[in-house]
Amino acid sequence: MSETGRMRASVLTAATSLEVQSREIPVPDADQVLVRIEAVGVCGSDVHFYKEGRLGDWVVDEPLILGHESAGVIVAVGSDVDANRVGERVSIEPQRPDPTSRESMAGQYNLDPAMEFYAVPGVDGAFAEYAVIQAHFAHTVPDSVSLEAAALLEPLSVAVATARKAGFTVGSRVLITGAGPIGIITAQVAKAYGAAEIIVTDLDAARREQALRFGATRVIDPSAESVGSLGLDVDAFVDASGAAPAVRSGFGEVRPGGAVVLVGMGASEIPLPVTTIQNNELIVTGIFRYANTWPTAIGLVERGEVDLDALVTGRFPLDEVQQALESTGRSDTLKSIVTPQR
C-alpha cells in the first residue's frame, strides 16, 4: 500500500474526457475489505458512459471512476472482518444491495432499487489502484484461476444468470444473436451446461470465427441468411447484441413454449411480435446483472469448462484507459483489461 495513503485512478470528468488523478485510498468500513486492484475488464456500459456520458436513465453529472469487472488481492480489512483474509486473491462482485429490501429478502438482490453498484453515477468503480467492497462480495478464487480470469467472472456471472433464465440443460438447442464478449461467454456456458446445438449470429466474419472457437456449433451471417425464417426450432433464444433487428428475428426461431432472454443493451423500446409470443406461449425475460452466481462461475473456470483467459486481447495501464475503451469497437477485440498496478 502507498505510504502516502493516496492512489492513482482514471476518472471520467465528462463525456470522452478522462484523466488520471490522485485520490485518497478508501478506508474499509467495518464489514468491508480493501482490495489492491490487479485487473479490470472493460464492459460495454463503461464505453457508453465514456462516449455519451450516460447509459439509459443514468447520467454522469460528477467525476466518476469507471470499471466494474475487477479482481485483486485483499490488503486490509474492516474491524468486523477476519484479519486472516489479508493476502487472499479475490474476484469482486461489484454491488451493495440493501439486505432488508423486498427484492433481497426474495433472493433477487440484483433487483434492489437502492442498489449501489460500481461505476454507476454516485458510486466509483475499479479503474484505480485500490477499491473497497463488502467482505462477502469479495469472492476468494483458487490459485489455478488467474486474476484476469477472476475479473472476468463478472461477465461470466451475467452468462450464468442468462443460462438459468433460459433453462440451458443437456441437449438444449440455443440461438445467440451477437458474438461480442457476452455472446461468446454465453456460448461457452451453453456448452458447459450440455447444449447440443449452439447457433451464433453476427454480421462480422471475424466475430463469427471467434464464436466457433468458443463453443458455437454453427454460425450465421444475418445479412446472408434470413434469421427468423430458418426453422431452427431452438429451445432458447438469447439476444446479446441489443440490435433491434436481431432481437425481432430471434422470436421466429423459438419452439413453442421456449424461452427468450434479452441481455444486450440497445434501444429502450422496440416493437415485438406479440402474436408469436402469445400463440407459442414464449417466456420472454430480461437480464439485469446477477445474484448468487459467483460460486458457479468460479467452478466453471476452475474445472476448465469456461476459458476466460483466452478472451483477453489487450492490456492497458491506467494512463491508457481511453485506448482500452476505444479498443472495444474493433472486431478483433474480445476483452480489454486495465492493469492499475502497471
Rank of each mutant, 00 (worst) to 15 (best):
R6C: 14
F127L: 10
A149Y: 01
A83Y: 10
G252D: 10
V90G: 06
R96K: 02
E129P: 14
Y109C: 03
P113A: 10
A159F: 00
Q278C: 15
V174L: 13
R248H: 08
D239N: 11
F117Y: 11
T328N: 10
V160I: 09
T13K: 12
F251G: 10
D46C: 02
V27K: 12
P222Y: 04
D307K: 07
L55Q: 13
A244Q: 05
S229P: 13
I92S: 05
V86S: 08
V73G: 01
N279D: 15
E225H: 15
A236Y: 12
D124E: 09
V321G: 03
V33K: 03
G67H: 14
D112E: 07
E69F: 03
A244V: 01
V170T: 08
D61E: 09
N292R: 01
G180V: 00
V200Y: 05
G252K: 11
G178Y: 00
P28A: 12
S229V: 12
G329K: 07
A324F: 03
A216V: 09
T100C: 15
A163K: 02
T186D: 09
P273G: 15
S331F: 06
A205F: 05
F237P: 06
A243Y: 05
A15T: 14
I133T: 05
E209L: 04
R342D: 14
Y50E: 05
R54S: 13
P271C: 11
V90R: 00
E154V: 15
G231D: 10
Q32G: 02
Y193A: 11
E148L: 01
G125Q: 04
A246H: 01
Q21G: 14
Q188I: 08
G286L: 10
L318I: 08
V306F: 11
V160H: 01
L147A: 02
G250W: 11
D239E: 13
I287M: 12
P222L: 12
P155Q: 07
L34D: 07
I176K: 00
L64K: 07
F168M: 07
G56W: 12
D221M: 15
I25C: 06
V33W: 01
P113F: 08
P295M: 05
Q32N: 15
V274T: 15
A161D: 04
A138G: 02
S17K: 09
R96S: 13
G314M: 08
A179L: 02
N292W: 00
G180I: 08
F237M: 07
H68Y: 13
Y130N: 05
A196Y: 07
V301R: 00
V158S: 00
Q341A: 08
A224L: 12
G41M: 14
Q322M: 06
T275I: 15
E302V: 05
L18V: 02
R89C: 04
L282V: 14
L156K: 04
G125R: 00
